[in-house]
């Protein structure tokens, strides 16, 4: 399978990465090189094979459903590019 320019633009938008028109051909070439490389997986017989979900044979531990953390709003917003008090600031989302 390979991707065309329209698909490249669609993927970029899904990935939320702005891509300029002159970047598209280059990206298309690179993505197609990667897709051509992974194409060889189609020759593997995976009939009846379970997809891997956990690489380590272990039961995942469950935690008690209790609050173990909190009261650190200052820490949470400490690295934010724009805040007001304990709120993150973004451009207007709802008209």
């Amino acid at each position: 399978m390979s991707v065309d320019a329209t698909t490249v633009r669609r993927i970029a938008h899904l990935a939320r990465i702005a891509v300029s028109e002159d970047e598209v051909p280059h990206l298309q070439g690179e993505l197609n090189a990667m897709l051509a490389f992974v194409e060889q997986l189609s020759e593997v017989n995976v009939e009846g094979v379970e997809p891997m979900t956990s690489v380590t044979p272990m039961q995942m531990k469950k935690r008690q459903d209790v609050v173990t953390d909190g009261g650190i709003a200052d820490d949470i917003v400490a690295n934010a590019p724009a805040t007001e008090g304990h709120f993150f600031q973004v451009p207007k989302v709802v008209e």
Binding site: L41, V44, V46, V49
Partner: peptide
């Protein structure tokens, strides 16, 4: 498919 191949590798 890749996750199935991963099972085979393991």
């Amino acid at each position: 498919r890749a996750q199935k191949v991963r099972t085979l590798i393991k």
